[in-house]
C-alpha cells in the first residue's frame, strides 16, 4: 500500500499570553520578564531551543508594544529606534560581527533614553561570540532570566501544547506515557510529537500509546 505523503509544513504555533504555561521550571523567568525590575533596562532571556524564549518575548512585546528583531537580520546601517523604545533582539548568539557596533550604539542609546532591551539566546551572555569588547562587557553585565529544562508537570503541558499546535487531540494516557519515557527536554518533546504526527498521518492510524510504542522505539537515538 502506498504511504500517505506527509509534508513538514510549519505548524500554527500559539504564541498568545494565554498560551504560556507557567510552571516551577519557568516561573522565575516568567516573573522576571513580565513584572520584574530590569536593572539598567535590559534583560537576557536564556534557554535551550524550543524552551519558549520567543513565546515569552512575544508576550512581553505585546504588552509593551515592543518591536521584535532577529539578531542575524539586523541591518548595521539602520537608523536607531526612537528614544525610550522597547525592543526584543532574538537569538543574539547569531549576531553578525558586522552588526556588533550597531548593537553597541543601540544598547547605549536605549539605556540613555530610558528604553528597554530584551535579548534572547541559547546561552548566557558570557558565552556569546562577541568580538567587540565594549559590547561584550555590556552584554555580560546584563541580568539573566533562565528557562531551564521542563519539570515533569511542564513536560506534560508542553507535549499537550505541541499536539494542540498541530491540531491534534492526544488522548490523556498518551501524554502520560510519553512524559515518562522521553528525555526531559523541549527538543525531545518536539521531536516526539513531530514523529508521532508524521507516523499517524502516513500510516493512517490514530494517535495512541500503541502507535507511540511502535514509532518511538524505532526513532530512539542509540545510547551514547
Amino acid at each position: 500500500m502506498p504511504h500517505q505523503l506527509s509534508f513538514d509544513l510549519p505548524v500554527q504555533v500559539a504564541l498568545g499570553e494565554g498560551d504560556f504555561f507557567v510552571a516551577p521550571a519557568n516561573a522565575q523567568a516568567y516573573a522576571m520578564v513580565t513584572q520584574g525590575h530590569w536593572p539598567e533596562g535590559k534583560l537576557a532571556l536564556i534557554g535551550p531551543p524550543g524552551s519558549g524564549k520567543s513565546h515569552l518575548g512575544r508576550v512581553w512585546a505585546d504588552r509593551q508594544s515592543a518591536r521584535i528583531r532577529a539578531a542575524a537580520a539586523l541591518d548595521p546601517e539602520a537608523p536607531l529606534p526612537p528614544a525610550g523604545a522597547r525592543l526584543v533582539i532574538e537569538d543574539v548568539e547569531h549576531l553578525a560581527p558586522a552588526a556588533e557596533e550597531y548593537v553597541f550604539h543601540l544598547h547605549n542609546h536605549l539605556r540613555a533614553t530610558g528604553g528597554r532591551l530584551l535579548l534572547t539566546a541559547d546561552r548566557a551572555p558570557s558565552r556569546w561570540p562577541i568580538r567587540l569588547p565594549d559590547l561584550a562587557s555590556r552584554m555580560q553585565a546584563t541580568s539573566i532570566a533562565m528557562l531551564d529544562d521542563p519539570d515533569d508537570r511542564l513536560l506534560a503541558a508542553l507535549l499537550m501544547k505541541l499536539f494542540a499546535d498541530r491540531q491534534l487531540a492526544a488522548p490523556p494516557d498518551l501524554i502520560d506515557w510519553l512524559a515518562l519515557r522521553i528525555e526531559r527536554s523541549h527538543r525531545a518533546a518536539a521531536q516526539a510529537v513531530a514523529a508521532l504526527d508524521a507516523a499517524a498521518l502516513s500510516l493512517g492510524r490514530n494517535l495512541s500509546v500503541r502507535l507511540a510504542r511502535d514509532v518511538l522505539d524505532k526513532t530512539r537515538p542509540p545510547a551514547p
Binding site: V22, Y30, A31, T34, Q35, H37, A112, T113, G114
Partner: peptide, 29 residues
C-alpha cells in the same frame, strides 16, 4: 483565562525604579 495576578509568582518586593522617563535630548544625557 485566569487573571494574570493569579498565574504569576507571589508578589515580590519591587525595587524603586531609579529613573525611567524619557530625556528630551539623548545626546545631552
Amino acid at each position: 483565562i485566569a487573571a494574570n495576578a493569579q498565574r504569576a509568582m507571589a508578589p515580590v518586593a519591587r525595587p524603586s525604579e531609579p529613573h525611567d522617563s524619557g530625556f528630551p535630548d539623548p545626546a545631552a544625557h
